[in-house]
Design a protein around this nucleic acid. Structure first.
Lengths: 204, 204
DNA sequence: CTGGTATCTTGTCAATGTAAAGATCATCGC
DNA sequence: GCGATGATCTTTACATTGACAAGATACCAG
């Protein structure tokens, strides 16, 4: 084998995501990864530092993919006017579709013990946070929609909710948990709610 | 050191839940557990078989605790009539409260690779499923409410949503994602139908 | 008291993550 | 062309872990 593999990093991220999808983050073995790529057992360490680095790389790719999926499902202009709720629903379905389509990435993205000071991860996180904010009328509505979609996706991936098609099963649920129009719109909005908190992980 | 510890199994489940809360399921070390309990490194294997067995035991305890929390928050009689939505909200808040109060248990409960054929686990799962079904008007409403609460709790524990108090922060979100009354009720921009009429009473 | 069983220990092994130090290659200045 | 420099990968080594087998100890029924 030649020394330079050429595209080892990218290939390892993909292999890691696949392995995580099958056996969870704990079942990921750096040596197994190296074996499948045909390189020595210490090769991954060079690209990712350590195991957490691999998970961080997978999560970074995940946030980028998620941002793209959200943008595609609910393009910029659609977030205003009467179709705002439609856009939010479309984004929610795209969120679920991303989660079941990339279970390995999804399983890692919300892990508390990632390298949250990694610049690439932060940038990717902000991309998807921006995509979410773009379809939500206000931060609180964003959190609500995010919670529904994230919860359904998590429960589906864990097997707690099952069926033939995740997105099809999610649609009535997302409609049921209807996100009410805006702040102070129908529904029970809060007097003097605290608008403030950011929507992405702060370094705990 | 006397041979019989007395209450080793219970103590280890508690220690495991604490360790998982800090370092995640992957960071759990059976040998470290044994060390802290002052027993030999092979003692855990006798009680739990293997590492997955420990996680299964923690999850079982988690489901039991969750069922108790749900029952306490929304007792049996409250699920009918006009207070049905109140009961659902109370159950949702109790769900979030349980998750942030027992992060170690919660982190393991929805792991796909548990020993799902364990009799104790199955029984505990069904207890909490029954508690959920008791407060939901129909299965689909149950899935919707479950998704919202589960999603918010997961995002909170991951740090994606943060603030001073989880349950207080969850309340407006759960209200926002208002569970509409019955099957076929209004949702997000249903064609022609009555617009979403939130049925939750305003906070006093 | 005795046999049996549950509980725990000791010894061992392969696999893993991580680190240090060396080998190979690619690229750029000259 | 060519040598230096840095990136990529290997080799070697070590501590830790999960799992297994076999033995020691404590409790309990008869």
């Amino acid at each position: 084998m030649s020394y330079h593999h050429g595209d080892l990093r990218r290939e390892m991220v993909a292999a890691a995501a696949a392995a995580i999808a099958e056996q969870g983050p704990a079942g990921l073995s750096l040596r197994e990864l190296a074996r499948r790529a045909g390189v020595s057992h210490a090769a991954p360490a060079h690209h990712f530092g350590n195991k957490t680095g691999v998970l961080t790389a997978v999560a970074t790719e995940g946030y980028t993919l998620l941002a793209a999926a959200l943008d595609k499902a609910a393009p910029d202009g659609a977030a205003h006017g009467r179709q705002a709720d439609d856009a939010l629903l479309a984004a929610g379905l795209a969120y679920v579709g991303f989660a079941v389509g990339h279970p390995g990435h999804f399983a890692v993205m919300f892990d508390r013990l990632l390298l949250h000071d990694d610049a690439g991860l932060r940038a990717a996180e902000e991309k998807s946070a921006a995509a979410l904010a773009r379809v939500a009328s206000d931060p609180e509505a964003g959190r609500a929609a995010w919670s529904v979609a994230h919860g359904f996706a998590s429960l589906w991936l864990s097997g707690a909710i099952s069926g033939p098609d995740a997105v099809a099963a999610a649609e009535p649920v997302l409609r049921r948990a209807a996100i009410t129009g805006g702040p102070g719109a129908a529904g029970v909005s809060q007097p003097g709610g605290t608008p403030g908190t950011p929507s992405l992980p702060a370094p705990t």
